[in-house]
């Protein structure tokens, strides 16, 4: 029974990775850039919830809304100010380095505003969870909510892309910016929408992450950010179902290896598996093999 419990905890952590990975993968697929500041948006989201809920005493739902909108604006503004001017730059390294710069900027701004000492995050999920099989299996409410939110985000995103004009524009821009422009699609606007969605998802992930691990520092975004990036690559970067599968797999591997092998080695195991997967399938689990243009 305890295995089942660990599995559910793994899926819960994996859902957080998956939600972050979705942002990575969408931005990569559409803007063709790796936004290394994406993880720090999670941290900003957590601080926004902390300051509006714990410090200002607002209702949890309102606090989450503030965090989501705040991160959405932050994502769009960083894209507009820091990344868009570099689009079409001769080297794609320029925007990558800028993203790393934005990451440090966000971390240090938080350090300046909130200080270095960790803040205790009050979980927004108060539900205790359910007990099954006469107490043999206890599932925390946080885990259930996290997994459910992950599924809602995945299916919501798929529906958005399939059934809305903005979603179709995203697919078109991802495949051929020039042809998309000729169809009347505003490429800049489409990329801004992608950043808005990715960053608000990061805020959601931040809330869920801190509900499970309730300590906030200016650096909490870094590790889940990197792991979500690994998840996106693992699943095949650019693929939305890939990000989901990659995230869930990563979460489960991390929790199971932490439990059954070694808590110190769990991260090493996660990255070792990534290396093996990439050796066997360089484009990730669901990634497309890049065809050469004829």
């Amino acid at each position: 029974m305890s295995f089942l419990n660990y599995l559910i905890n793994g899926l819960s952590l994996g859902s957080v990775y998956a939600i972050i990975a979705l942002g990575y993968t969408m931005v990569y697929g559409i803007a063709k850039m790796l936004n290394f500041a994406h993880g720090d948006i999670i941290m900003v989201g957590s601080y926004l919830v902390y300051s509006s809920m714990t410090m200002a005493g607002l209702h949890p739902v309102l606090s989450i809304l503030i965090a989501v909108i705040g991160c959405m604006v932050l994502g769009v503004v960083t894209e507009r100010v820091a990344y868009r001017p570099l689009r079409g730059a001769s080297s794609s390294l320029a925007v990558l380095i800028t993203a790393i710069g934005v990451s440090y900027l966000l971390q240090n701004l938080s350090l300046l505003i909130f200080g270095a000492d960790p803040k205790a995050f009050t979980s927004v999920i108060t539900w205790k969870g359910i007990t099954l099989f006469d107490g043999a299996l206890q599932i925390r409410g946080t885990a259930i909510v996290t997994i459910l939110v992950g599924l809602v985000v995945l299916f919501g995103l798929q529906a958005f892309i399939r059934h809305t004009k903005s979603g179709q524009a995203m697919l078109a821009v991802a495949q051929d910016k020039g042809a998309a422009t000729l169809c009347g699609i505003d490429v800049n606007r489409t990329i801004a929408i992608t950043f808005a969605i990715g960053s608000s998802l990061a805020a959601v992930a931040g809330v869920l992450f801190c509900s499970t691990y309730p300590t906030i520092t200016p650096y909490i975004g870094a590790m889940p950010g990197i792991k979500a990036f690994v998840a996106a690559v693992f699943g095949g970067i650019g693929s939305i179902p890939g990000a989901m599968i990659g995230g869930l797999t990563l979460g489960v591997i991390e929790i199971l290896s932490r439990t059954y092998i070694s808590s110190q080695l769990s991260d090493a195991i996660v990255f070792a598996i990534l290396i093996v997967v990439l050796l066997v399938r360089p484009t990730g689990l669901l990634g497309k093999r890049v065809m050469e243009k004829v």
Partner: peptide, 23 residues
Amino acid sequence: VPEGRRVFADMTVLQNLKLGAFS
């Protein structure tokens, strides 16, 4: 109609056509 056709290769014929009416 661009050189080399440049249809959106991963999308269906209908999705491609609808993108033509995007504006």
